[in-house]
């Protein structure tokens, strides 16, 4: 089994970090995994995305044009990546920063006001990325909250360790968010 993930948003939303946490979690689950960034010449601004490929065998290819699970944290990413979702796959949309709209009927849409939730429940919009991973954990059933928690310890640098409890809370809130059909 090989599954592809993309996380996309604009610079500063913690897209690359969220991907790194996800990739670490798969590693901790003894899966083969590859994380790769998209990158432009600029250091700031514009859209950012990263891909994560998880596989039971060796990870063969990256940079595929289709993906099983895509998280989009802003409108530009939503516009760009809807067509990238593999048939039957899922797209998790940050409805705080993207309009709720469905243009395909062969994929699952999960609309969550991620930024709003991070602000109201966690008091920090910077928690959006990790909150989104909590949602992904529930939607994908491919990675547990427990493993994502462990992965946070691998990824968050020593001088930011005090932020880990808050991030764990973000994961849980994301996971517990009531995913009613829109």
């Amino acid at each position: 089994m090989e599954k592809d993930f993309i996380i996309a948003g604009f610079g500063g939303q913690g897209v690359l970090l969220a991907g790194e946490v996800l990739a670490n979690a798969f590693m901790l689950d003894c899966k083969n995994v590859t994380w790769y960034p998209s990158y432009g010449a600029e250091m700031r601004g514009g859209t950012v995305n990263c891909g994560v490929v998880m596989s039971d065998e060796e990870v063969s290819s990256v940079q595929k044009s289709k993906s099983d699970f895509i998280i989009v944290l802003n409108q530009a990413s939503f516009d760009k990546y809807t067509s990238w979702v593999r048939k039957g796959g899922s797209i998790i949309v940050n409805s705080s920063l993207a309009k709720i709209a469905k243009t395909r009927d062969d994929i699952n849409y999960i609309f969550v006001p991620i930024t709003k939730m991070a602000q109201e429940k966690l008091g920090n919009i910077k928690m959006s990325n990790i909150f989104a991973l909590g949602v992904l954990s529930k939607v994908s059933r491919l990675v547990s909250l427990k493993t994502l928690e462990k992965a946070l310890y691998n990824v968050i640098p020593p001088h930011r360790k005090h932020l880990i409890p808050k991030n764990i809370e973000a994961l849980k809130l994301g996971y517990e968010y009531d995913l009613l059909p829109v």
Binding site: E20, N32, V33, T34, W35, Y36, P37, Y39, V59, V62
Partner: peptide, 9 residues
């Protein structure tokens, strides 16, 4: 560039 930038265990 892909190998340089990608992460793997």
């Amino acid at each position: 560039g892909l190998l340089g930038q990608m992460m793997e265990p």
